[in-house]
């Protein structure tokens, strides 16, 4: 789905390109691309730190690895201000519904990264107390292997999420859950 900026397609590009006063300050693009470009470079994470993966998550945010290089340094401890939930650690059954509730409180568009073996599959905890993968409760966009993953792996995951966001039809599908709720009711 291509949504074009409302410009006069015949004359405007040529005029803008050759007008020396605004040359270089005007970009012609698709609305989808523009929105995605803004979204993917300002991903505000919701740090769902549940176990040792959260230590690596903190390292990723700190100066040595520094995810502010990719616009994702603004950790938000309120789900209402967050874009991507990084589930880093062992999701116990006792915590599982709390994680889902926080996910539900995040405004769309929203993404989820399952960081590490436990959040992805339950990891080594094949036991009565641990949810066998957070994807049983909420949709996951990116899985990161490792126990715990290195900060580089998390950064790679964030970059892959950026690539995924780049391909999304952002303008028409930005309120998927809301539309699904409205059409169901």
């Amino acid at each position: 789905m291509n949504v074009l900026l409302p410009v006069d397609t015949e004359l405007a590009p040529a005029e803008a390109a050759y007008d020396s006063k605004i040359e270089g300050n005007v970009i012609f693009t698709r609305l989808d691309t523009a929105i995605n470009w803004m979204r993917k470079n300002s991903l505000w994470p919701m740090p769902m730190g549940l176990a040792c993966c959260a230590i690596e998550l903190m390292a990723t945010g700190a100066s040595r690895f520094d995810i502010s290089r990719f616009g994702a340094e603004v950790m938000r401890f309120s789900p209402r201000q967050a874009d991507v939930m990084i589930v880093s650690g062992t999701v116990t059954y006792k915590m599982a519904l709390a994680v889902k509730r926080i996910y539900d409180q995040m405004p769309e568009p929203k993404w989820v990264i399952a960081m590490g073996a436990c959040a992805s599959t339950g990891g080594m905890y094949r036991s009565y107390a641990v949810l066998q993968g957070i994807d049983q409760l909420i949709p996951v966009d990116i899985y990161i292997s490792g126990c715990p993953p290195r900060p580089e792996a998390l950064i790679e995951g964030m970059l892959r999420l950026q690539r995924k966001i780049d391909k999304e039809p952002s303008f028409v599908e930005q309120k998927k859950e809301l539309i699904a709720q409205l059409t169901k009711a």
Binding site: Y93, A96, L97, G122, Y125, R126, S127, Y128, A129, Q132
Partner: peptide, 20 residues
């Protein structure tokens, strides 16, 4: 009690499943 756990369900509180 089996190592894999047993299923249980308490709506709005918690649930458990059987680990593979």
């Amino acid at each position: 009690f089996p190592l894999a756990g047993k299923p249980s369900e308490m709506p709005d509180v918690a649930f458990t499943g059987v680990a593979p």
